[in-house]
C-alpha cells in the first residue's frame, strides 16, 4: 500500500487530489458517481455571509477546450451551510475545505469567525471577489489589500488558511508573498481567467449571438496554471495547491513537477463526474507499479531532473 498523504504544516490530506470550489457543489451531489470520502478534500462552493441568488443572464458557454462561467457566486449562505450541509459532510466523513467569498474585509472576517466557532478545519479565501468598499477592485489583484485581508482573517481563524490566487495580475509572486507574510498556510492557484465566450451564427440573413463574460476554465488554461505555479514555487515556502485544467493523472504529475504539493480537479468534474476518484486510483497504481512508496518520493524525482 503506497502512502499518498500530504503533510505540509497545517495542510494535511490523505491524498493530494482535491476538488475545486464551484465544481463539486457541497459534495453530496457527487455520491451517485464516486465515493466522496476517498478524496483528499472537497472544496465547497463559495459561501458568503448572506445567501446570493447569482446572476440572471446566461451563465455558461463552452469554448475551445474549456468553458466560461458567470454564476455570480450563487450559494445558500453561511447560516444554511452550517445548519444543513455541514452535518452531512461530517457524518459522511468527508474531508472538506470551506471556500469563503466576501464583498468587504469585514465579511471575510465574520465568515472566518463563524468557521473558527464551528471548528471548520480548513478554509480557502476566494479573493477574486470585488471589494465593494474600494472601487470594486478584486482583493487578489493588489498585494497590500490582499495582505491586510489575510492578516485580518488570520487573527480570528486558527485552522488551515488557504488563499486562492487569481491569475489576472501582473506579478503573482507579490500576491503570493503577501499571503505568506501575513500568515496563510497555503495558496491555491489558479482561479479562473477572465474571458468571453461567444457563439455567433448567421441564419436567414440574420446574425444571432450568444455570449457569456466570466471565468475561463478547463483544459485550455492548464499552461497558464502550470506557469503560475512554477513562478510561485520560486518565491514561496508555504505549500502550493495547483489547479487549472487538470483532467488526468499525467496533468497531476506535471503540477507536482513544477512544485505543487496537492492539486484540485475543477471543470473536469463536469465532463467526467468520476474523474477525481479515477485519478486517485491511477496515481496509487502508478506509484505501486513503479516503486514509489510515498508521494514525497515521487515529487522529489519529478522535481530533480532538469527540464530539457
Amino acid at each position: 500500500m503506497v502512502d499518498l498523504s500530504v503533510k505540509r504544516g497545517k495542510l494535511i490530506l490523505k491524498n493530494p487530489i482535491m476538488t475545486a470550489s464551484g465544481t463539486f457543489g457541497y459534495a453530496d451531489e457527487f455520491e451517485d458517481f464516486i465515493d466522496v470520502s476517498k478524496l483528499g478534500a472537497v472544496v465547497t462552493k463559495a459561501i458568503s455571509l448572506k445567501p446570493r441568488p447569482g446572476n440572471s443572464w446566461n451563465r455558461v458557454i463552452e469554448v475551445t477546450s474549456g468553458m466560461i462561467n458567470s454564476i455570480g457566486l450563487e450559494n445558500v449562505g453561511v447560516e444554511k451551510f452550517i445548519a444543513e450541509k455541514l452535518p452531512v459532510l461530517r457524518e459522511k466523513n468527508i474531508n472538506f475545505v470551506m471556500n469563503l467569498a466576501g464583498s468587504g474585509m469585514d465579511e471575510y472576517v465574520e465568515l472566518a469567525r463563524i468557521c473558527e466557532a464551528n471548528k471548520i478545519g480548513a478554509v480557502e479565501l476566494n479573493v477574486s471577489c470585488p471589494n465593494v468598499k474600494s472601487g470594486c477592485l478584486e482583493f487578489g489583484t493588489d498585494a497590500r489589500t490582499l495582505g491586510e485581508l489575510v492578516k485580518s482573517v488570520r487573527e480570528v481563524y486558527n485552522g488551515c488558511l488557504i488563499v486562492k490566487l487569481t491569475p489576472n495580475v501582473t506579478r503573482i509572486e507579490d500576491i503570493g508573498l503577501a499571503a505568506q507574510e501575513n500568515g496563510a498556510d497555503a495558496v491555491s492557484a489558479i482561479n479562473t481567467l477572465k474571458g468571453l465566450g461567444m457563439k455567433l451564427s448567421f441564419k436567414n440573413g440574420k446574425f444571432s449571438r450568444e455570449q457569456v463574460i466570466g471565468g475561463f476554465s478547463g483544459m485550455a488554461v492548464k499552461p497558464v496554471a502550470l506557469g503560475v505555479v512554477n513562478r510561485l514555487k520560486q518565491v514561496l515556502e508555504i505549500p502550493i495547491i495547483g489547479l487549472g485544467g487538470i483532467s488526468s493523472m499525467q496533468d497531476v504529475l506535471e503540477f507536482f513537477a513544477v512544485g505543487a504539493e496537492a492539486v484540485q480537479i475543477g471543470t473536469a468534474n463536469f465532463t467526467t463526474p468520476d474523474i477525481s476518484e479515477r485519478i486517485i486510483d491511477e496515481l496509487a497504481v502508478f506509484m505501486e507499479e513503479n516503486g514509489f512508496e510515498t508521494l514525497d518520493e515521487l515529487k522529489a524525482v519529478l522535481r530533480h531532473f532538469p527540464p530539457r
Partner: peptide, 9 residues
C-alpha cells in the same frame, strides 16, 4: 455545464 445539479449554470 454539469447536468448533475452542482454548477448552477
Amino acid at each position: 455545464a454539469c447536468s448533475i445539479g452542482v454548477c448552477r449554470g
